[in-house]
Measured scan of single mutants.
Amino acid sequence: MSIQHFRVALIPFFAAFCLPVFAHPETLVKVKDAEDQLGARVGYIELDLNSGKILESFRPEERFPMMSTFKVLLCGAVLSRVDAGQEQLGRRIHYSQNDLVEYSPVTEKHLTDGMTVRELCSAAITMSDNTAANLLLTTIGGPKELTAFLHNMGDHVTRLDRWEPELNEAIPNDERDTTMPAAMATTLRKLLTGELLTLASRQQLIDWMEADKVAGPLLRSALPAGWFIADKSGAGERGSRGIIAALGPDGKPSRIVVIYTTGSQATMDERNRQIAEIGASLIKHW
């Protein structure tokens, strides 16, 4: 067993022997301040990774656009098919120029040779490549099948209805392509620590998230040296922004954090800054 596999296998073990965790309302004060600064709703939840206990939450059962955070769930569904012998990570998928959609920095470079399922998941999570996500959605049967996968996990809230990039439209009061912070946090925890996926697939999923290259201005910008984070960000229309993450000190994750916002007129930089400040408060009061 590799060191990384050992780390993920012992996530519940280490967490069980940690000192009790206590909620700190100071972080919620910052979440509410972010709402004021952005002029928009902000949803927040913080779960203990081992027990699933909610440590703090704000608007945990209000719907927010998922945006690209759905790509972690998508690759979880792909990995479940791999575990069941219905898919192979090494299978190569070929596609054409007509398949390319807006923001496809990886797939646009491989029109000639195609990409493997493993490479597509890596591109979808680490670079948020939209064509990679659409190609992977095709392998599982489309958005409705991802929703069905989530329902089978016990998540009857999260739903995907459309493809990239239309799913980022974020129309107010439109339930399409949305989740709730509580539902997303619980589902992410199941994917990373539950028995739904094999140990190898859980490790692969967290490795992809740990290698995320496009979430630097968010929670990662607030992390002290030595902290662990595996995350996936999302951005959408109407001032929408979000991030889902597993993080913790001492090089291992111990909490799940989900943050979503929508309806702001603020710039992307300002949305990023507010999420980073929430992260800084979380870490300060850990």
Score class of each variant (00 low, 15 high):
A34D: 07
A200N: 14
F228E: 09
L196A: 06
D212G: 14
T178N: 02
A266N: 02
D113N: 04
P253I: 15
E102W: 02
D36L: 09
D113Y: 09
P217W: 14
E237V: 10
H156F: 13
E35Q: 12
M67L: 13
T193Q: 08
A225D: 13
S122Q: 07
F228G: 14
N152K: 13
P224S: 12
R273N: 06
S122I: 13
T138S: 07
R162M: 09
Y44P: 01
M66C: 06
L167D: 13
W163H: 12
E56P: 01
K284E: 06
D177F: 00
G263L: 06
K71H: 00
Y103Q: 04
P181M: 03
A77Q: 04
S128M: 00
P172M: 11
A225Q: 02
L137N: 14
T261E: 03
N173I: 04
P143A: 09
R202L: 06
E46N: 15
T138G: 08
K30R: 13
R91V: 07
E270N: 03
T126Q: 04
P65G: 07
M153P: 01
Q86W: 09
F70L: 09
S57E: 02
L199T: 10
L47A: 11
L223K: 15
A266W: 03
A276Y: 09
L160P: 07
L49Q: 12
V257E: 13
L38W: 08
G85I: 04
L146K: 01
D269H: 06
E277L: 11
R162V: 08
N168S: 12
L89F: 11
V78H: 15
F149K: 03
E62S: 03
F64E: 01
S264T: 04
I45S: 12
Q274A: 13
I275V: 08
I125N: 02
D250G: 03
K53H: 12
R202K: 04
F58W: 12
Q203L: 04
L73M: 09
D155H: 01
P249K: 10
A34K: 02
L199K: 12
S254T: 09
D250I: 02
L247Q: 09
T112C: 13
T158M: 04
R273S: 13
V78C: 15
R238N: 03
G226H: 11
L282M: 08
A40R: 08
S233K: 01
L146D: 01
A34V: 06
G85H: 07
G76C: 10
D207V: 07
T261L: 09
K32M: 15
P60R: 14
M180V: 04
R202T: 12
A245Y: 02
P143R: 04
R255I: 12
M66N: 05
S240N: 02
A148C: 10
T267N: 09
V72A: 06
T27Q: 11
L49I: 15
A200I: 10
L135N: 06
D129P: 00
L100D: 05
L199P: 10
R92G: 11
A34R: 09
E145P: 12
I45C: 13
A182E: 05
D83E: 12
K109M: 06
P224F: 03
V117A: 13
K109C: 12
R59M: 13
L74K: 01
I93W: 15
Y95D: 01
S122M: 03
K190D: 11
N50S: 08
T27C: 12
Q204V: 08
N152R: 07
D83H: 04
E169W: 10
W227C: 03
A222G: 07
S122P: 09
R59P: 00
I229M: 13
L38M: 05
S264L: 08
C121G: 09
W286E: 06
A148V: 04
D129M: 00
S281M: 02
A84P: 07
T262K: 06
P65F: 12
G248V: 01
L192P: 00
D174I: 13
A148R: 08
G142Q: 06
A40Y: 09
H94A: 03
I283S: 05
A124P: 00
Y95N: 08
D33W: 02
S104M: 12
G142L: 03
A222K: 14
P60L: 13
L28Y: 12
N98H: 07
E169F: 04
K30N: 05
E61F: 12
T138F: 07
L73E: 03
A182N: 06
G142S: 07
I243T: 14
K71L: 00
V117H: 06
S128C: 00
L47V: 07
A133P: 03
Q97Y: 08
I243Y: 14
N152S: 07
M268E: 13
E26L: 09
F64W: 06
A148F: 03
L192K: 04
T193K: 15
A215C: 05
G236H: 04
